[in-house]
Nucleic acid binder design. Structure first.
Lengths: 222, 222
DNA sequence: GTCTATATGTAGATAGAC
DNA sequence: GTCTATCTACATATAGAC
């Protein structure tokens, strides 16, 4: 399924190194600005300026604003899914995981990336928050996030065969919301606790995992 | 402090009944469209059309798009704060509340309104989700939500004097995120559990309260 | 792939009649 | 307060030279 002649695909030649860099710069700029101001608040012109590229080039690589938006969401979603599923496999190989261990495989990879991967990963969390808030992006959300989410829900369901799947899914969605809140609303936690927000993100991992695991356990036995 | 001559205030006469109705229709339309498409995705013209009012009137009542947005957020925020604080007072009068009881006073009033108050309250939840996702609205968020949030965090802190305030605030912010997820992402819960989303919102109250209370308790003792 | 110039629509805001 | 007409700016998208 790779590199065979495909009449559907338009691009025939491999892109040059410079082209790939330009494309990456455009996606980074789009990620930053879509995250900061949402789909309609970020203009192609602003994205072009931030990327240091002319406007026409942004259209060329993005194939229109909506498609550019989807590409930006998809890029890290795919990377995250791989990391999460790999973590879950390792965890399962070491023995039957409990809810906390399962959720640690889901949130851990993101928190590690956010800690070490630079500010683009924080921008991405805000972008996902925008996607979650806006009903126009439901299709994007389903397409790029649901398959992996279903695997994790299955894993919890296997651990608690008597619990209704709807309650497990509910607890899981609550947990994802909490994870995004950690990544996007540390300023608010800081304001409400009267001090500065927590310095280290990965230092918050166990607290978040404990919150999610206890919450899910309580919700499914209610 | 009421009805005295105030040189700061511009409006001198009480608005007519018709004017108040028009204003309410404009705020409702703005709420719906801001919730659906975010600040930049909703245009003043769309809001005017939905409200059945001319564009100039939207500007007149809203005093500019940003101020209109803030007014829409503020309207229900103030109403919700009153309901929540009243619920907490009643709860405290009946004896020392635990974490679940405290959180029930916070999320209960919203879920009841969403159940009985019509679709505008669901739109408002999406609007708040947009406000939370977008760093441009931090001031609005602080101004209209933080005071009440601080009261509830204080109440939990009184119950657990040894827990750090930062952890309590973190658990509270996670809980608010979960509440918004219930109001804005039932479609996703439905998709992930392979069936329809839950019919009744208030039927989900105890499950959500259990999730939040167990999560907070686990997070502060971690 | 890269970049410039341009076409076409629509945005927020305001002036002024009623 | 209500409504119409209009100003100015900027949006997305594309055509075509290099």
């Amino acid at each position: 399924m790779k590199n065979v002649t495909d009449p559907e695909k338009k691009r025939q030649r491999a892109p040059s190194k410079r082209a790939l860099e330009t494309r990456a710069r455009i996606l980074d700029a789009a990620e930053l600005l879509f995250a900061e101001r949402g789909f309609d608040g970020a203009s192609i012109r602003d994205i072009a300026t931030t990327a240091g590229a002319p406007v026409g080039l942004v259209h060329h690589h993005g194939e229109g604003k909506e498609e550019l938006f989807r590409q930006v969401v998809a890029r890290r979603a795919d990377e995250l899914s791989s990391l999460r599923l790999a973590a879950l496999e390792i965890c399962k190989a070491a023995g039957k995981p409990d809810i906390a261990a399962i959720m640690r495989c889901f949130v851990g990879p993101y928190l590690e990336r956010a800690e070490s991967g630079g500010p683009q990963w924080f921008a991405y969390a805000r972008l996902v928050a925008h996607v979650s808030a806006d009903p126009r992006w439901r299709r994007i959300s389903s397409r790029h996030f649901d398959a992996t989410a279903a695997v994790f829900i299955d894993e919890i369901a296997r651990l608690h065969p008597d619990a209704s799947r709807e309650r497990i899914a509910t607890g899981f969605v609550y947990s994802v919301a909490a994870m995004l809140a950690l990544l996007t609303s540390r300023w608010r936690i800081g304001e409400l606790s009267g001090g500065e927000p927590p310095v280290s993100i990965s230092g918050e991992l166990e607290e978040l995992v404990a919150f999610c695991a206890a919450g899910i356990a309580a919700a499914i036995s209610k």
